[in-house]
Amino acid sequence: MNIQRILGFSTRYLYLYKRSLPRLMEIFYWPVIDLLLWGFVGIYLKKHQGTGPDIIAFFLGALILWDILFRSQQGISISFLEDIWSRNLLNIFTSPISQTEYIVTLLLMSVIKLILASTVMVLLAWLFYTFNIFTFGLALIPLAANLIIMGWSIGIITTAIILRYGQQAEVLAWGIAFLFQPVSAVFYPVDVLPGFLKTVAWFVPASHVFEGMRTVLDGNPLPLDQVFIAALLNCAYIMVAILFFNWNFKAVKRKGLLVKNGE
């Protein structure tokens, strides 16, 4: 793996965000809208709820953490789509950049976009609702790391599917993460799910993260068992995602689809 090639290719996306206001806005627009919407819903519910757990903190914490997962997935999928839209794939894959270096570049871009979007969300949550995400303390690190890796797994699989099926599959880039939201226990505990969905949720790393988040917000220590299970699941899923991408990449080259998607 060549770092210079990865950094060199990353500048392609950085130039894109420098040059395109709509693309730059896309990083911030939905997070800000979501934050405002859920923050005010939280305020309204708190007024009627009286005492009890801080519902605003639950909503905003969940929203910021969910956005970490969503952004890390989108950072990969959308960056890849940018190369399809601009008919740039053949330039990439006739250059010395390897498929691993290309994926690492997409991961790097997802981290950069994530940092930008999260910074704005954290600042707005603090300004508008006096919610400080850093009250999670060090627990924030394993929670966020698990969500990033889950987002990467979904992003890599989405990219592989788009590579295979072309732009007709691009809707996945926007919506696939939401497929996991109901069983990720983002805004409610796993307990409220019906029986079989509880089982499904157990296999979703995000559900363990959000259960952990609620435990911390209740004033308890971070449940390490939840973090550990999430990490184990993530290790398995990221490996599956990489294997799927590599297998799919070979199939795409065999079927001549790389060229069709690249021109």
Binding site: R12, L16, R19, S20, S86, R87, N88, L90, N91, E263
Partner: peptide
């Protein structure tokens, strides 16, 4: 190739 391009937003 005349069938490929480069990212259009970039200079």
């Amino acid at each position: 190739s005349s069938y490929i391009s480069l990212p259009s937003t970039l200079t």
